[in-house]
Amino acid sequence: MKKIIDFTVKENRQLNPDTFLLVVYSPEMPEIEPGQFVNIKVEHSPATFLRRPISVHNVDPDEGLLYLLIKIAGQGTATLSKIKAGEKLNIILPLGNHFSLPDTGKCLLVGGGVGIAPLLHLAKELKAKGVTPVVLIGTRTASDIVLKEEYEKYATVYYTTEDGSYGEKGYPTQHSLLKEKFDHLFCCGPEPMMKAVARYAYENKIECEVSLENKMACGIGACLCCVNDTKEGHKCVCIDGPVFNINDLKWQI
């Protein structure tokens, strides 16, 4: 069941000039599956009319904590980046579908930029099921890599940077790790990267799920603004996604 909850900000930690980690608390925190998202009302930002959909980075159900890893992309997220501990944040959650959690097989989680956000929750749940995942993080440069130690708690982590300043030089799809055989691929990041990963998955006959982030207004399937063209017609990213199996999309890969 979806809820509208006033969370209290516990911590707002700036991780690099344009990325921050928001930790918010509510005793009413509902159960959230890896890959789901929340929709945040941004106060004190006149230019921000609609809520901001943000993927769930991690949850701590026992403590009632929700972790959100956010990159500043415009005025809405810039306003959120300045929120202080103790302030309230009105959030609708949980929204959308979730990644499937396979019981067996080798899982590779590929994240590009802030697209790594939902993969921490996924890695944690996979490890809890006994399916230790491998995570591959791609960024432009070393200073873009954030919360490295968090991912390393739950997975073996590999890195690529476009300038070669950390890990292997290039894009995630060029990493030597991909010579290994994987059974499941999960990916979130910029669309060109997701398409490259989808192509690799398709060529190697690997099950692959991607998380999309189309612009949306309502987040609950009412407005039909966030549609993605699929083999079954227009589907809402907010309720039929954000996670899609690549076989259902009409990507030219």
């Binding site: 009319f49 609609l50 207004a217 039909l224 603004c225 966030c226 549609v227």
Partner: peptide, 22 residues
């Protein structure tokens, strides 16, 4: 089927939509 994506743009104190009666 309605119009192709993108169908929505946020504007000052409002939004534009072009869903197209999907």
């Amino acid at each position: 089927e309605g119009n192709p994506y993108p169908r929505m743009a946020e504007t000052p104190s409002g939004m534009l939509n072009a869903v197209g009666l999907q």
